[in-house]
Write a protein that binds this DNA or RNA. Sequence first.
DNA 1: TATTTTAATTTGCTAATCAAATTAAATAAT
DNA 2: ATTATTTAATTTGATTAGCAAATTAAAATA
Lengths: 402, 402
Amino acid sequence: MQKIKPTSDARKTGTDLVFSAIRQTSPTPRIDIVRITGLSPATVTSITADLIANGLIEEVPAAKTAKYQKRGRPRVDLKIRGAAHLVAGVKLTDKIVTVIILDFDGARISDFSLPTEKPIHSSLETVDLLDDALKQALASANLEISDISGVGIGIPGIVDGPSGYVYWSPAISDRKIFLQDMLIERLEVPVFLDNDANLVAIAEQRFGLGREARNFIVVSVEQGVGMGIVIDGKLHRGFHGCGAELGHTKVHLDGALCRCGQRGCLEAYVGDYALLREASTALDSLSGKSPDVQMDILLSEARQGNQLAVSIIERAGRMFAMGLANVVNIFAPELIILAGERMRYDYVYGGEMIAEMKKSIMQAGAPSPEVRVHKWGDLMWAMGAAAFAIDGVSEIALKELN
Amino acid sequence: MQKIKPTSDARKTGTDLVFSAIRQTSPTPRIDIVRITGLSPATVTSITADLIANGLIEEVPAAKTAKYQKRGRPRVDLKIRGAAHLVAGVKLTDKIVTVIILDFDGARISDFSLPTEKPIHSSLETVDLLDDALKQALASANLEISDISGVGIGIPGIVDGPSGYVYWSPAISDRKIFLQDMLIERLEVPVFLDNDANLVAIAEQRFGLGREARNFIVVSVEQGVGMGIVIDGKLHRGFHGCGAELGHTKVHLDGALCRCGQRGCLEAYVGDYALLREASTALDSLSGKSPDVQMDILLSEARQGNQLAVSIIERAGRMFAMGLANVVNIFAPELIILAGERMRYDYVYGGEMIAEMKKSIMQAGAPSPEVRVHKWGDLMWAMGAAAFAIDGVSEIALKELN
DNA sequence: TATTTTAATTTGCTAATCAAATTAAATAAT
DNA sequence: ATTATTTAATTTGATTAGCAAATTAAAATA
């Protein structure tokens, strides 16, 4: 006759609910938490007291900008207690290792970067490299490894996030490595590893434009085209844990050759090397220059109206629109975030591309997603890694909270 | 100091957990439910007693095929009590309305179909038509509408499942209609409306190949190409509630014209009309025949080795593979179910297509999804609608369980 | 100074759930 | 046949997450 509730692991406890509500709306009074979580005021009082006692959150006596509160007992805002933990976020690319140190509330403590000596390292060298970069970053901020509660690491390639297993990465010479385990052993702190594009999505969710959306995708362009998918507030990684491969989505049957060996991949039309491949046969001015310079030339030629350059860029934009439209047709997010640091990818982020994409969505009256461009600074990727670490550390902290 | 759990709506209560565990593993003893749900034996006893008392489940004294149980008190299997409720599933197409009646356990009670007089109806006529078909189906099984606890209805087009709002359907002349509300008013039973492809996915999840998977996609081919996505055991509908549009995924920039008005849609390469469009310019034998007959001719020509027919079919298969690979690259499901009734779509379901698709997935060592073909009978679509109704009725029943 | 208003806390209870002990129903061992 | 063993299910008694209702807190307004 009696009714029953479970204590199963997957389900969120009240404490988790409250904590993530606070994290989402940062300085927020208890009544708002009541509204967000649906818990009773009594319960919220009890839980928040517990969290404060454990140092995970704190009251900020300064009430919020008066706003709609005219009279009555003033609200007391709650926020994540930054001092509770420090985390590091590390981004590995072929050229540079970037490290950022954030407090538990996401405030930047310091950042650091270290150029790599060569583009590809073995897994052992990678561990050395990351260890080295982290230690230097800590030293420059007068910190020690023991001050850090967790390290998030984003690397390009095919990575199984939950297990920290790397199938393949363009920055690492060997394949199928348990990189997370190797790093945990070396660094002696909790390490959270994932594909870099996934981590950018987490950064958008925590600190960026994804704070209010529960279903969105983040497309990030660096060398390749990366994508992170957030469904129902949760990063979707697919069953093998590796997330999505927008760059290797096919946009043309038997199309252009991609560096992955397949044909017709989106990346083979919009990646730097793909553009230069076309441009080099048409623009003499490129010969002998480095790829970066070549790209600059191509883009400035296009801006100045060189028809050839324009047509190359335009086609890339249209292909990109097509790839994006496919994601929308399949997934129907409420929001698409185009996140990136480089202004030079104008052709990708431009209004024309977005218009083209919207034209390619099967609509028949259903609302189409909002598209927003987020031009982060160059620490975007490391921020994502750090955000991931904060998530991981939070989980541990809440579990230990007993 | 005290720890707190929520009663929020979204979260599953123990009763929900137990009920869905039983539904998934059908005749199953209590200890297995203990293992599946993680609840304690005491709790399972209590909850199942409650469910039995309310008539939603029942004990089946005949123990399971002895198997691994050597001695000890014999297990008592539990299953959904079929007699608890009856539901109807209705599938609307331009040619026919199919109705199936299932009991609460998914056993077929009867089925019925009614050809439509014209391919497109107004929304009011559609309500009449569905009402009529349902009533006739009930009559033929000696049932009345009051015997039915819910009706699931699958229609093609852009449908917001949760709200039962139809943006557009090829079978209905007017747009933007609150069809579910209209039907509830007319039929006076709970009505659950959704896109037909989504409902096939639910059927696979409940009765078919998706019973053991938590992340899978179901691709169903009828006139168009439909897809249902199940993520984490839940149907993914996207934020506008309309599910995925695989058929209007773009596989060619500025490609073939689709009946949706856009260019390069997958459907414009693999749909019947697309194949016939090509074939009619090349195969004289087609002229003057009806589309169905034309398709039969085309396919039999291809089987007999007519190179022209073969090349048309082959290209469609490759395009299909490309569209499917894109879904895999984006979603990474563990299982792809190709569900359909018609043998004639061999070219779609064939091993070559699957091989082609697997070649087009970005892998680098990550496991690729299993592909399974499920050739249902012609009641597949109605079964899906009925499965959806069972879900809906279950939810209501559990909520009322006080 | 009293009243109103809103936020937060306290108090006391309810119900979901579990741990541990017990009973049930079978097989295996003596 | 009787007893021991094994596994399934139930009962008993406690625990605790969470709520409703009452209370206190801290402000603005009358």
